[in-house]
Amino acid sequence: MKETNMTNAKISARAVQVYYGDNHAIKDVNVDIEDKTVTAFIGPSGCGKSTFLRTINRMNDTIDICRVEGDILIDGEDIYDAKVDPVQLRAKVGMVFQKPNPFPKSIYDNVAYGPKIHGLARNKAELDQIVESSLRKAALWNEAKDRLNAPGTGLSGGQQQRLCIARAIATSPEVLLMDEPCSALDPIATAQVEELIDELRQSFSVVIVTHSMQQAARVSQKTAFFHLGNLVEFGETDKIFTNPEDPRTESYISGRIG
């Protein structure tokens, strides 16, 4: 069973432990995340779901006191291996953050930022092409095409978050990590981003951390429930929400804990 999972899985985590100083934040997590699916991480605040998400593109490296043990494999390659360059890894594993964080640059430069630093475009025309297709995939092209030189910070909250998604997919990553991407958005913008996530599933493996169980149920195919640093249950979203195995999962989704 484990072996077959290893072959299908885009990301495989084995016995992952994360420590912040003396605090044991993630305890022995094993999980297989499939390609071209949306996987939702749910759980109460402080349960470690965001921490685990950030281990997948080694964003935790930027925190001095953070220490990661165990193996995380993407396409069978250990990303914590000494010969892996975290900078290259992050181009392959894109990330969208909780609060929209467009750079203080124009909309065009925001999207072109990743392709430029990785040298993905040979000329201006190619770069234009990448920017346009990224903005189209992020469902922002129609709103932004006439104001590509306007500052990205001038957009509305929902547009800013879609700009950040466009920015992340412009480097053509294979995995897209989303850390509560809708928590700073209103319901309409949330609906747009959720629709977008569903479309992105065609090309990427998407991992999304969310506090909204409805959102997890709406957008994801697989759901993982974290509690106090443990991965309590992982499986088909329908099954987790209708017939959970673990009593803690049941308590959480029915609103008794968390």
Partner: peptide, 27 residues
């Protein structure tokens, strides 16, 4: 300069010095 800016840039695979030159210093 908000940490979110740095995270955004590092998350796209920029090195710290690229992040400083292109995102932190302009901001």
């Amino acid at each position: 300069v908000p940490q979110a800016m740095r995270d955004g840039s590092l998350g796209l695979g920029a090195t710290p010095s690229e992040t400083i030159r292109q995102v932190v210093l302009p901001a």
